[in-house]
Every structure is written in C-alpha cells, then in structure tokens.
Amino acid sequence: MRLLIRRFDEKSYWQSFEVPVKRGMTVLDALFYVRENLDPTLAFRASCRMGICGSCAVKINGKPRLACETQISKFKKEIKVEPIDNFKVIRDLVTEFEGFFAKHKKVKPYLIAEADYENPVEWLQTPKELSRYYVFSLCIKCGACASVCPASATLNGYLGPAALVSAYRFNEDSRDNGKEERLKIVSDSVGVWRCHSAMECSEVCPKQIEPAKAIQLLRRSLLR
C-alpha cells in the first residue's frame, strides 16, 4: 500500500512510502513501520494505540481520524496522511496543542464543590444523573473537532467544540456547583455564540460525542 505523508520541516512537502499490509493493520501501524524501516526522521504523536489518549489524530484521506483506530483495509489505493487543520504544525504530523489545552483549562473542567475533608463522604449520583453527561465525558481531547470547525479556523480565540463539551459535561454533573462560573466563561463573545451549527465537529468526532449538540444545550441553558 502506498502511504503519502505530508511532511513539514521548515517547509511542507509530500513524501511517498510503500508499506506492506498485514491483516488488522492500522494507519498508526503503518506510520510506525515507516519510522522503523524506511525513514527514522518521521515525526508523529502516538501513545495508547487504543483510541483513549487522543494523541494520534491526523487527517487521513481528507478526514481527521485517530490513526490507531483506522484500519488500512478501509482504503483501496493509497492513504494520504496529513497533520490536522487549524493547528500550527511543529514537524511532520505533530501539531501544537498548547492553545487547545489552554482553552480547555479556561472552562474549569473539574468539579467545583465544597468538600469536607475532615469527614469525607461519598458523592452519590443516580444512573439517571450520570446519563445526563456521560457521553460528553468520553472526549479524549484529540482535537479532531477543532480541526474542522469553521469558527476555529478563522478565530484563534474561539473556545472551540472540545472545551465547550467539557463545560457542558461539568455543568450537567449533579455533584458540581460551578455552573454559573462556567456559564459566564462560555457566554463570552468567543464562546458558544461563535458556533453556527456547521456540524462538522459532530461528523468527525471519533467518540461520536456530538460536540455540536453539547454547544447548543449549553446555549439553551444560557437563555434561562
């Protein structure tokens, strides 16, 4: 199988590699094959190899996907691998995630609640309460959503789908008391109002989280 990789080292260029295909092989396996056998200078990010860490999101044949969860057999002729859009490329397939994580931190993605550490008690939650936010807690911060979002493409400051999903996830948590603080942050003009429902994020999310839906639900809670 021909693997076309968009490389970047001061300038951007395409490089082609021939990779032997094995049953069950993923695009990430192919990238490792290239690095181990053909070109040790190839740079890419990967960690868990099982779709949990969110490190290996790259554009594969035009669509952002997790390289570790994309089977090579899915494609017939060739595979084009590029760094994801809307992120600054550092080298080859490695992109700068600092701004992305800073936005995530901005929405206070943790439980805000008073705890009595002297007499600790369990925070109980019913399955129904859990189901209000569970799906949105599956986000692995891979950046696929932000890489296709038209607002993220032209507005650096826009919080973006992933951060807004986190805000919604914690706001819907029955154990949390920080709703007002987060709503204040996401209602800024670089917050939820920049989403125009292009739905691209929901279309590419490898965890099928539907970030666009979380943003609209967040927006709805702002009307109250």
């Binding site: 038209p150 607002a151 032209t154 507005l155 650096n156 400051g157 826009y158 003009s189 670089v190 109002w193 920049r194 125009h196």
Partner: peptide
C-alpha cells in the same frame, strides 16, 4: 455581524 466576528480581525475590533 456574526460572519465578521468569526474572524480574528473582526473580533479584535468587536
């Protein structure tokens, strides 16, 4: 207005 504010230049001069 929404279109213009979707850009860096627009948002800077909101």
């Amino acid at each position: 207005r929404a279109i213009i504010l979707d850009t860096d230049g627009g948002m800077r001069r909101k």
